Simulated assay, not measured.
Amino acid sequence: MMENSQRVFSLFVILSLLHVHCQGARQTQDMKCGACRALVDEMEWEISQVDPKKMIQTGSFRINPDGSQSIREVPLARSEGHLLEMMEGICEKMKEYGERVDPSSSRTTYTRISSRDGKAMDLSNGALDSRVTAQLKFACETIVEQYEDELIEFFAHETENVKDKLCSKRTDLCDHALKMPHDEL
């Protein structure tokens, strides 16, 4: 009889630990997904702030044997150099994000809590926590480090639904099945 109760107790402990582990994995996945989506928002906003008429010359300034040069003009906002410069400080913007838990799905999302233009924002169901923003910043920095080439590739060209294409399809940082709203700038 005592042996059965020990088995039940052991099974209960194992299931409890498994539940805690799965919950932690879900929080980690939500954090990575949230950081990716916030990173995309910030990159798109920064790009939108650059005058679209500003161009930069790229390529080689050396003279080819035929007398030509391999120079081309590209919009400054989407040039590799500008994108790399933006990525150096983009994760600092994560301090402007807060955590929200969706009451229906219990999924955690991360939303901007500080307006770019000074207008009031809806902060209901949101929480600002320095621990969370530090984790979000770290997740952002990890994404920039691991996926630098993909970020350059996506942002060098105007692409629709970058969040879905980059965060879900290319990097698997977000669940494919997770239906996140398509945010606007």
Rank of each mutant, 00 (worst) to 15 (best):
M1N: 11
S5F: 14
Q6C: 11
V8T: 06
V8C: 08
F9K: 11
V13F: 00
L15G: 04
L17S: 12
L18P: 02
L18M: 14
L18Q: 11
L18C: 14
V20H: 09
V20A: 15
H21L: 15
H21I: 15
C22Q: 13
Q23A: 11
A25S: 13
D30Y: 10
A38T: 01
L39P: 01
D41E: 15
M43I: 15
M43H: 06
E46W: 14
I47G: 00
I47R: 01
Q49W: 04
Q49R: 12
P52Q: 02
K53P: 04
M55W: 00
M55H: 02
I56E: 15
T58P: 08
S60A: 08
R62Y: 11
G67K: 05
S68M: 08
S70E: 12
R72Y: 02
E73Y: 07
V74E: 08
V74T: 07
A77G: 05
R78D: 07
E80Q: 15
G81H: 11
H82W: 09
L83Y: 04
L84W: 09
M86K: 06
E88N: 10
C91S: 05
C91P: 02
E92H: 09
M94F: 09
K95V: 12
G98V: 00
E99T: 12
V101H: 06
V101G: 06
P103D: 02
S104L: 14
S104Q: 15
S105G: 03
S106I: 06
T108L: 06
T109S: 06
Y110H: 01
T111I: 13
R112D: 09
I113K: 03
I113R: 03
S115Q: 05
R116P: 04
R116D: 07
A120C: 07
N125V: 02
R131D: 10
R131C: 05
V132Y: 03
Q135I: 05
L136M: 05
K137E: 15
K137L: 09
C140I: 05
T142M: 07
T142W: 05
V144L: 03
Q146G: 08
E150R: 08
I152F: 02
F154P: 06
F154E: 07
A156W: 01
H157E: 13
E158W: 12
E158H: 14
K165E: 10
C167T: 03
K169V: 13
R170I: 00
T171L: 04
T171C: 03
D175F: 12
A177D: 14
K179I: 14
D183P: 04
